[in-house]
Simulated assay, not measured.
Amino acid sequence: MASYSNLLSPKKSLNLLLICTVLAVALPAEALLSCSTVFSSLEGCATYIVLGGRPVPPECCSGLKSLISTAKTIPDRKSFCSCIKGVAYSATPEELARAAGLSRRCHARVPFKISPDVDCSKVK
Rank of each mutant, 00 (worst) to 15 (best):
G52N: 09
A29C: 04
S79N: 03
L17K: 10
R104N: 11
I68D: 02
L32Q: 15
G53D: 09
L64F: 08
P75H: 05
K113W: 00
T37D: 12
S90I: 12
C60I: 07
I19M: 11
I19Q: 08
R98W: 03
K85N: 02
S115L: 07
T21P: 01
K11S: 15
T47Y: 11
L8R: 11
L42C: 05
R105A: 11
G63I: 07
C61I: 12
K113G: 01
L23I: 15
L17W: 07
Y48H: 10
L51G: 04
K113T: 12
S69F: 05
E95R: 06
M1I: 12
I68K: 10
A91G: 03
L7K: 14
S36H: 14
V50C: 02
C81F: 02
Y4Q: 10
Y4D: 13
I84W: 00
S9Q: 08
V110W: 00
A99R: 00
L16Y: 11
M1C: 12
L17D: 08
L17V: 12
C106A: 10
V87K: 14
P57E: 13
K122Q: 13
A108T: 09
G44F: 04
S36P: 04
S121V: 06
Y89V: 07
A31C: 08
K85F: 05
F80Y: 12
S115D: 11
G101L: 05
Y4L: 15
K122P: 01
S40Q: 15
G53K: 10
T47L: 11
A24F: 14
L96G: 07
F112L: 07
I114C: 03
V118N: 03
K11D: 13
R54F: 06
T47D: 14
S5H: 10
T92K: 11
F112Y: 07
K72T: 15
K12N: 13
C61M: 13
L42P: 00
F80A: 01
P28C: 06
P10E: 04
V50W: 08
V123K: 00
A26T: 13
L18N: 10
G44C: 13
G53F: 10
S34M: 05
A26K: 06
L67S: 02
P28N: 07
S9F: 08
P75Y: 04
S34P: 03
R54T: 12
A108Q: 05
D117C: 02
P10W: 05
V25L: 15
N6A: 15
T21L: 15
G86F: 06
F112N: 04
L102P: 01
V22M: 15
I49Q: 00
V22L: 14
G63C: 11
T92P: 02
R98I: 06
P58I: 14
A100Q: 14
S3R: 13
I68M: 04
A46P: 01
G86D: 09
S79K: 04
A26Q: 10
A2Q: 11
L17P: 00
S3F: 05
H107V: 09
A91C: 15
